[in-house]
Design a protein around this nucleic acid. Sequence first.
DNA 1: AAATTATATCGTAATATTGCAATGTTACAA
DNA 2: TTGTAACATTGCAATATTACGATATAATTT
Lengths: 107, 107
Amino acid sequence: MGASKLDIYPESINQMAAIAKVFAHPARIAILQYISKQESCICNDIVDEIGLSQPTISQHLKVINDAGLLKGNFKGKSICYCLNVERFKEFQIVLNSFFNGTTSNCC
Amino acid sequence: MGASKLDIYPESINQMAAIAKVFAHPARIAILQYISKQESCICNDIVDEIGLSQPTISQHLKVINDAGLLKGNFKGKSICYCLNVERFKEFQIVLNSFFNGTTSNCC
DNA sequence: AAATTATATCGTAATATTGCAATGTTACAA
DNA sequence: TTGTAACATTGCAATATTACGATATAATTT
C-alpha cells in the first residue's frame, strides 16, 4: 500500500491531517518563518537562507502555496511570496479547536 | 533521496515538524479523538471504530505513543491507552507560539 | 496446561516524499 | 533579439510511510 485510506474518515479529520502535513517538514516551517520575517520575499533568497537546492525549495513552496498559505505579488522577474495571514489564522483555528475539543478523564 | 535533511535546521523547527507529523495522518487524528472520548480504551475497540486492520492501528498507536501522547494503564489483557493531556497541551503551546510568532506585512 | 483474547512485531508490497541535476519558462536587460 | 536572472518542471534515485497477512507474545480463562 503506502497510500492513506482517506475515504474512511470524516472530512473534518482529513482536512486537519492535510493542514498538519504542510507543517510536517522542517523546510516548510523554515520557509514560512523566513517569509513572515520579510517585508517582501524572493524565492532565491530562501535558497541562500536554507541549505537546500532551488528545485527543492520550489517544490516545498508549491506545497505551501497549494495549501493556500501564500499570496503572490508578481512584480517583474522576481516573484514576491507573502504569507496569506487570513488562511494561516484559519489553520490555527482548526488546530486549536481540535486541541480544545480533546480531553481525557481516564488514568 | 527521500530523507529530510534534519541537520540543517534549528532544533525548534525540527521539533515543530515532528509534532506536526503525528497529526499528519487522519488515522492518528481519529485515534486521538476516539481515545479522548472514552473513559478507558482498548485497542481492539479502535480497530472496530476505524476501518483499519489491527496491525495498522497498532503501528499508528506506536507513533502516537513515541511522541509521548499516551499514558498507559496496563490492567489485564486489555491495555488501557489514555491521552497524556499534559504532553498534548505542550504540543498545542508549541504550535500556537509558532502561529503567533508568524505574521506578514508584505502585499 | 490448553485454549482464548488482545495486542505487538515481522515481513513485504504499494505508494508517497524528499532531494537534486538537467532542462523549461518567463520577464526583464542590453 | 539575444542574453540573463529568477523561478518552475521533469525525471530519477533514495528513503519513508502506509497497510496488511502471518506470526509472536502475554495475560486470562477454562
